[in-house]
């Protein structure tokens, strides 16, 4: 089964376009999928023939199913529970961050204000979770 580097779940067209630009400009990968709502990724992950990603970058505020519920699903399903999930949100509210970790997020990134910082942050994410494949650290039940 073919593997993919990561799935970006982001409903904001602007943020998605900016990330696409960063990925392209920094020549990080072409092997990724951008999904724009929570329902889409749920359907994808439920499909037994679908290629599993090395990591998922998941926004919280999403149409249809919100990011935290998506995360809950990922951790509850045998096939997906070991995929590293990094939350990616504008919110820096304690409640959101705590809930995310409680549901089993591997990391929590607050979307920065500037494009420059955004670029730095994304490159770091990519290097850590995909390039060096920290998913090798498997989750226990």
């Amino acid at each position: 089964m073919k593997n993919i580097d990561f799935i970006l779940v982001e409903d904001s067209e602007v943020d998605g376009q900016l990330l696409k630009r960063i990925i392209k400009k920094e020549r990080l990968t072409e092997n990724y999928v951008w999904m724009k709502d929570g329902g889409q990724i749920m359907d994808y992950l439920k499909d037994e023939n679908a290629a599993m990603p090395t990591a998922i970058l998941l926004d919280i505020k999403l149409p249809k199913v919100n990011g935290l519920d998506v995360l809950k699903f990922i951790r509850s399903s045998e096939r997906t529970r070991n995929i590293p999930v990094v939350m990616y949100s504008s919110s820096n509210m304690r409640d959101d961050i705590q809930t995310a970790y409680q549901y089993g997020a591997n990391s929590y990134l607050t979307k920065p204000n500037g494009f420059g910082e955004m670029k730095e942050q994304f490159v770091d994410f990519f290097n850590y979770w995909i390039k060096h494949n920290h998913s090798a650290l498997k989750f226990k039940d």
């Binding site: 602007v14 376009q17 504008s90 919110s91 820096n92 509210m93 979307k111 204000n113 494009f115 955004m118």
Partner: peptide
């Protein structure tokens, strides 16, 4: 406030980001 932070920042990132591009 949450909505403000989320929804206002996203277009701002767009403006700034595309200006940088």
């Amino acid at each position: 406030s949450y909505t403000v932070s989320h929804d206002l920042r996203s277009p701002l990132r767009g403006i700034e980001g595309f200006a940088q591009i």
